[in-house]
């Protein structure tokens, strides 16, 4: 019986543990974002100064300086790393490209894309 409990505990820990994305920003410090379920990251257009992260539950807008598409790719890399790493690696930090900055979180909405 204790063996079954142990296996269940390991299974539970592996699949239920939360992971976080850490996004360094100029105005909001390091923003820690729970990424359970994953996000779609995109920019509406190059030159917009805007990057968005969305899933069915949450929509987050980031004000950015620099090449938006490169910033999107750096966030995507961190999301993929978070999915690849063991459950004990809880925080995946976004490594922004040179001269790129995330200025701040513009908004967090409780509703995803319609």
């Amino acid at each position: 019986m204790p063996i079954f409990l142990c296996i269940f505990a390991l299974y539970f820990k592996k699949y239920i543990m939360k992971k976080y994305l850490s996004i360094p920003t100029t105005n909001n410090g390091d923003v820690l974002l729970s990424i359970e379920g994953g996000f779609v990251c995109f920019t509406p257009a190059i030159g917009s100064g805007f990057v968005s992260l969305v899933n069915p539950n949450l929509q987050i807008g980031l004000s950015v300086v620099g090449d938006e598409q490169e910033i999107v790719y750096s966030i995507q890399d961190a999301l993929v790393n978070a999915a690849k790493t063991p459950h004990s690696d809880v925080v995946s930090t976004v490594s922004l490209p040179n001269r790129a900055k995330v200025v701040k979180v513009l908004y967090e909405g409780g509703v995803g894309p319609k």
Partner: peptide, 10 residues
């Protein structure tokens, strides 16, 4: 929109 990644949501 470059290469877009979509999570395999439920």
């Amino acid at each position: 929109s470059g290469v877009l990644l979509f999570p395999n949501l439920q």
